[in-house]
Amino acid sequence: AQLADQKTLAKQIYEAYLKNFNMNKSKARVILTGKASTPPFVIHDMDTLRLAEKTLVAKMVGNNGIQNKEVEVRIFHCCQCTSVETVTELTEFAKSVPGFVGLDLNDQVTLLKYGVYEAMFAMLASSMNKDGLLVAYGNGFITREFLKSLRKPFSDMMEPKFEFAMKFNALELDDSDLALFVAAIICCGDRPGLVNVGHIEKMQERIVQVLRLHLQSNHPDDAFLFPKLLQKLADLRQLVTEHAQLVQEIKKTEDTSLHPLLQEIYRDMY
């Protein structure tokens, strides 16, 4: 009976993941391995960026004054738009995780505040390969070299995510593994300021147990995959801490604004 319960939970979380996220690893891999019917538009310099802005991300850069700003600020703005959309998707995903909506509302806020960026960077790896990153719902591909060529501090934004992604992708997780991993990131009992820690720890324990069993059956040849993934949780926390510091620096020194939802998340984070 317990095993059946665990399988049901894994299935519910996987279905919620497939339903709520516009992009997933299997979709991204089809595009990144050249198997999509239409290949993504490659953004590798200022000209191709301008073209992409007119077609792929017109909604994000049009009619809000952003189109006259410098390239780094425009890219930063598009990153923010994508982040906001992903936070929205993650919120819906979290609400579909059994037990989450029954938690104290303040704790739901806390879990999202501290979990969304870790989850976002874990999922971002699915859209990355060593040469670049899928953007605009998989319709564009921006090269790592182009992102590195931007001026400081913007050039420091994505490289740590690529470095993480290359190691993370080497674990060869599929979407069913990632769904449970993302749920485990969100339902984390040691976020600062949680009211009902015990309740969340129980939820987390259940999800982590299901993740462990799922990895055993889905990756029988990699006995150490579970502990490796637990280490990735710590790596993601570090990645988010550094990202939050960089965003604060950009906010202080650059002529750019931060979306109100992201401001809420970053404020008093670490």
């Binding site: 936070v87 929205t88 509302l105 303040n106 806020v109 505040k113 939802l261 809420e264 998340i265």
Partner: peptide
């Protein structure tokens, strides 16, 4: 905490209200 995270709070309570980009 809810007061300091109005948009997150709204997303949690009402999924049908989109966030402006």
């Amino acid at each position: 905490l809810k007061e300091k995270h109005k948009i997150l709070h709204r997303l949690l309570q009402n999924s049908s209200s989109p966030v402006d980009l």
